[in-house]
């Protein structure tokens, strides 16, 4: 028996591949060095120290009873924010369906790239821009927020829907067609049971994101808790800002964990 050659985990690399690797690593390092060097890291002077601000944000509102009624008042605004996310999310999860059917390779056919393009276009526009646009269109308030959330969410929901549609197992459809079922029955019993739980799960996941997004949307006047947040911040009223942040964090944590558990059950 001949002497066994040494086995390597990696396949043999040519000199050219090694050179490419070195080139990539060097250029990335240079790029990083350049971006560090080009930035101005000096800290602009501020009247109050960061520690004071942090203290006024998260400690004062909790220990000073005169701020406690404000928590209740702001909670109602947070509920409005969640309602904006919910209404917008439901609208988006319905509106995304036809676009997803168009965008999926197997259902959209030759024109599926049109659907993909619509979804990509929507996703590339930041939610704040939608907020500004709809506030200008229908005036400030929750309605503008709902519209912004619903249009903005279509991009991601539609893309994930389309991926679910593309990964459908056709075998049950074949079985139904082979036993004399018609195409509507094949869809209802062969495809829908595969899609519905996934669609629900996707919509729930997007709702979690929408809650955070609709908080931000208030900053441009689209209703909810973002409006008092930006006002308080502009007046340097840190206790007020702290109350709002605490409420947002609490709501987001609770909603994320409930929705996460629901999604686990759906899979």
């Amino acid at each position: 028996m001949s002497q066994s050659t040494k086995i390597s985990l990696r396949s043999q690399r040519s000199l050219k591949q090694k050179a490419t690797f070195v080139l990539i690593v060097t250029s990335l390092t240079l790029l990083y060095a350049f971006s560090l060097w080009s930035q101005d890291f000096s800290i602009a002077s501020s009247q109050s120290s960061p520690w004071t601000i942090l203290y006024r944000l998260f400690v004062v509102p909790l220990i000073n009873p005169s701020y406690w009624p404000s928590f209740v008042e702001k909670s109602w605004l947070m509920i409005e924010t969640v309602a904006i996310a919910y209404a917008g999310g439901i609208a988006a999860s319905i509106l995304a369906l036809p676009i997803a059917l168009l965008a999926a390779k197997n259902s959209g056919g030759k024109v599926h790239y049109v659907g993909k393009m619509i979804l990509n276009a929507i996703r590339s526009i930041p939610e704040l821009l939608f907020g500004v646009f709809f506030v200008a269109a229908v005036g400030p308030g929750s309605f503008a927020g709902v519209l912004a959330i619903s249009v903005n969410s279509i991009g991601m929901i539609g893309k994930l829907y389309a991926e679910s549609i593309e990964s459908i197992d056709r075998a049950p459809v074949e079985a139904i067609r082979a036993s004399g079922g018609n195409s509507l029955q094949a869809f209802w019993y062969g495809i829908l049971p595969q899609l519905l739980p996934q669609f629900l799960s996707i919509s729930l996941f997007r709702f979690e994101i929408d809650v955070r997004a609709s908080t931000i949307l208030g900053l441009v006047g689209a209703g909810g808790i973002g409006v008092p947040l930006i006002l308080a911040q502009q007046q340097r009223h840190w206790e007020e800002v702290g109350i709002i942040l605490i409420i947002v964090i609490l709501f987001v944590v609770v909603i994320d964990s409930v929705s996460g558990r629901l999604r686990e059950k759906l899979n």
């Binding site: 197992d169 075998a171 079985a175 082979a178 036993s179 004399g180 018609n182 062969g190 049971p193 595969q194």
Partner: peptide, 21 residues
Amino acid sequence: LRKLRTQIGIIFQDYNLVGRM
């Protein structure tokens, strides 16, 4: 054809069931 297919059952190698049902 659909009428005829109701008279002919077919069993597949990979069962062709809907897993979630």
